[in-house]
């Protein structure tokens, strides 16, 4: 079988940790599918650096393009370029992290390649079928991709990051001439503006500790006063329930759950969150779960290793102080 193309997602040349999880999935797919090798493509500013750093991970050939078309992420040029790289490198399948741009661009690549698409996979079976969650994680499906060409997005928490290995090959610029339609891309529109949330804490998807606040916080002021110090005491990322985001206490990209981010940190602390299935879908694979809720029957306690039935406004600040003193004395 032909090779598998890895969509190398990076930030200014620095490869995302999730890209290495996607590479791990690609390696497992390579052996289950009998693919000949793994190649890669990186796009956007400093993608050359990202491409070069993937050689150590055994990619036999990596293409990059820093062309102005890819300066800001847009689904249309990215999808076309990924499909072009797949054709150039003789890859019939494409694998990438299910980040927001991975989820956005890769199914579009599947349409261009007339491929079978599987999103957010969490496992690879020896027979080549894949595992993916359905119904807010209440069901796991074993799914067969029956088209010759396949596109897969990978849930970052589903695979351990791949390690370095031998066999790495060449890095070269992707020649865009192979797809005349890429020149037509300006007609696909433009980015008008970004409104990014401040990133002065660890990234939610990679953090060792996540503290999440729910509706019970009651206001964005309280969210800041209670959750931020708790997060900083642990060196944690901050998450939120949908109710907290909808109410404007926290920005959209902090939402944990079925329709938000999926996290699996060493420690997850749910503060004033009831534990609806859609929230659990995003955090129930955490190693240790702590729940603080004043309702002893809240469903969050059914998944929590340690449950503290209490008023969060009393115990969260107390926890903050104790953790701070432990960590400063350590």
């Amino acid at each position: 079988m032909a090779s598998i193309l890895l969509f190398v997602q990076h930030s200014h040349g620095k490869v995302l940790k999730g890209t290495l999880a996607a590479l791990q999935a690609a390696r497992e797919l390579q052996s289950a599918w009998g693919a000949s090798g793994i190649v890669g493509v990186a796009l956007g500013p400093q993608s050359k650096t990202a491409a070069e750093s993937m050689v150590a991970f055994g990619l036999s050939s990596v293409r990059y393009s820093e062309d102005a078309l890819f300066e800001k992420y847009r689904a249309e040029p990215y999808a076309r370029a990924i499909a072009l790289a797949a054709n150039d490198l003789g890859a019939s399948s494409v694998v990438g992290l299910a980040s927001s741009s991975g989820k956005d661009a890769l199914p579009r690549v599947a349409a261009l390649l007339d491929a079978a698409q599987a999103s957010d996979i969490i496992g690879v079976n020896p027979d080549g079928s894949i595992k993916r969650p359905m119904y807010a994680g209440n069901v796991i499906a074993d799914v067969e991709l029956v088209a010759p060409s396949r596109v897969v997005t990978v849930r970052g928490t589903g695979f351990a990051p791949a390690g370095v290995t031998t066999g790495g090959g060449d890095v070269a610029q992707l020649s865009l001439g192979g797809d005349p339609e890429l020149k037509e891309q300006p007609r696909f529109g433009e980015v008008v503006s970004y409104e990014m949330s401040k990133a002065d804490r660890p990234e939610l998807s990679d953090a060792e500790v996540v503290v999440s606040g729910g509706r019970a916080l009651g206001s964005s002021d309280n969210f800041e006063k209670v959750m931020f110090p708790l997060a900083d005491a642990f060196g944690a990322a901050v998450g939120a329930s949908r109710a907290a985001v909808d109410s404007g206490y926290a920005p959209n990209d902090w939402q944990v759950g079925q329709t938000g981010k999926v996290v699996a940190p060493t420690l997850y602390i749910a503060v004033g969150i009831s534990g609806a299935i859609q929230h659990l879908a995003g955090m129930k694979d955490s190693k240790v779960i702590v729940a603080i809720n004043k309702d002893p029957d809240a469903p969050i306690f059914e998944v929590a290793d340690y449950g503290l039935v209490a008023d969060l406004f009393a115990v969260a600040p107390e926890l903050t102080e104790v953790v701070k003193s432990i960590r400063t004395s350590a």
Binding site: R74, S99, S100, S101, F188, G189, E190, V191, V192, S193, Y194, E195, M196, S197, A199, P251, N252, D253
Partner: peptide, 11 residues
């Protein structure tokens, strides 16, 4: 709604 916040595009 994207990783990191919000992005507005015109298409």
């Amino acid at each position: 709604e994207v990783d990191g916040g919000l992005e507005t595009i015109k298409i």
